[in-house]
């Protein structure tokens, strides 16, 4: 009797998912007289991905954010490689940020489809602040590092946000797969990038203040040579 109750309990607990089976679709449709074989529930969606909460839409927006940042960093890299600015190290730094963001956007798209969803290139995050119309990549060295630091923090904090949405204690939105994907592929590396950029701004700050600003032009030259080595 106890055994029966246990089994019944199990069936109830998993009821929400068990009703949703591909197997039922298959056994319903195969052997029927009709020619159709739709199998609507034979898909990669599990754990309510895309059905509840905003994790799925935020993942699409996250891919789009990486795409946008990738091309912005590419423009910064280009600007620092013109004959006037001529800072090969800064250019290399931005180029690397661009390459990384590009690769991440492709990985995110693949991950979205891995979870049975489609990619929406027009999706924006609810977390997104109003786009800055005065945005420019034509900034001086310290400004450009400041901007890069801010945009890298935005990427990291967006990952935190999606992680938080995916780990809320609710059976509808809890998604450990997304949480661990963000932890493994995003946040750790982002912390490194943020720390490096913050370190660069600290160095430049010291050069600007030191010796009544007399060091600046030479300091920027040396710092750029340094970036060429370390990036």
């Amino acid at each position: 009797m106890k055994m029966f109750a246990f089994l019944f309990g199990c069936m109830l607990a998993s009821g929400a998912f068990a009703a949703d089976t591909c197997y039922q679709d298959v056994s319903m449709d195969c052997g029927q007289a009709s020619n159709s074989l739709a199998l609507p529930r034979c898909n990669a969606v599990f754990g309510n991905y895309g059905r509840h909460g905003n994790v799925a839409t935020e993942m699409q927006a996250y891919a789009n954010l990486h795409l946008e940042r990738s091309y912005e960093y590419l423009l910064s890299a280009s600007y620092y490689n013109n004959y006037q600015t001529n800072r090969a190290g800064f250019s290399k730094l931005f180029r690397k940020l661009s390459d990384e963001a590009w690769e991440k956007s492709i990985e995110l798209i693949k991950h979205i489809t891995k979870r049975g969803d489609t990619m929406d290139f027009a999706r924006r995050s609810t977390q997104e602040e109003k786009t800055d119309k005065n945005y420019t990549v034509e900034l001086h060295e310290l400004e450009s590092l400041a901007k890069a630091l801010d945009t890298q923090k935005e990427l990291a904090e967006r990952a935190f946000y999606i992680h938080r949405e995916a780990t809320r204690n609710s059976p509808h939105t809890h998604d450990p797969e997304i949480a661990q994907y963000l932890e493994e592929e995003f946040v750790e590396k982002q912390a490194d990038t943020i720390r490096n950029l913050a370190g660069h701004t600290a160095d430049l700050k010291k050069f600007i203040l030191a010796n009544n600003g007399q060091d600046l032009s030479l300091a920027l030259y040396l710092f750029d040579e340094y970036l060429q080595k370390v990036v």
């Binding site: 946008e68 091309y71 013109n82 004959y83 006037q84 420019t136 990549v137």
Partner: peptide, 18 residues
């Protein structure tokens, strides 16, 4: 860049559209 271009008007070079 090799030809001395992109000294200005860099930001407007690329727009991202879906």
């Amino acid at each position: 860049l090799m030809r001395g271009e992109l000294e200005t008007d860099v930001t407007s070079l690329i727009q991202i559209r879906a």
